[in-house]
Amino acid sequence: MIIGFRLNGQEVTARVDHPASLLDVLRDQLGAYGSKNACEQGECGSCSVLLDGELVCSCLVLAADAEGSEVTTVEGVAPEGELHPVQEAMNRVGAVQCGFCTPGFVVAAVDLFERNPHPTSREIKEALAGNICRCTGYGAIIRAFEELAGREVR
């Protein structure tokens, strides 16, 4: 079947012949490789997207269930050529190592800061508890967002 949805503001269509996930369709059909696949079961957050404004794991969304929805991926969080403040904050403090988890953290943090521009450290951690990073130990990620939240950063 052919499905259609809005991806980062653009109407897109894709053909799904088997129960593919939204993540598979984003990557393999639409060339949106920013969302990453690392666990296929919603346990790492690397494929995080906003589906109709809600932060979800795109690996657990049946692609056909995105029909008519608005999907925002890491490619769509900032205008072309610009960085979202969340991306700037991570870049400044060295919160990126291998970078495989990074798009998921960016999308989850964009969601957090839209709902709560001045989160506490606790709120930052709880909002990002579904995103696994294997490289950084999270220290720089926390520092990036504490700084962005305008709170004291050690």
């Binding site: 949106a32 490619e75 060295g94 970078g99 798009p103």
Partner: peptide, 23 residues
């Protein structure tokens, strides 16, 4: 110096090419 890594921005934008992304 703690220089900012050159691959940071492409990784933050989802533009960095991983083996998984090659086609």
């Amino acid at each position: 110096e703690s220089t900012i890594r050159p691959d940071g921005v492409p990784k933050l934008r989802g533009e960095f090419m991983y083996a998984q992304d090659m086609h």
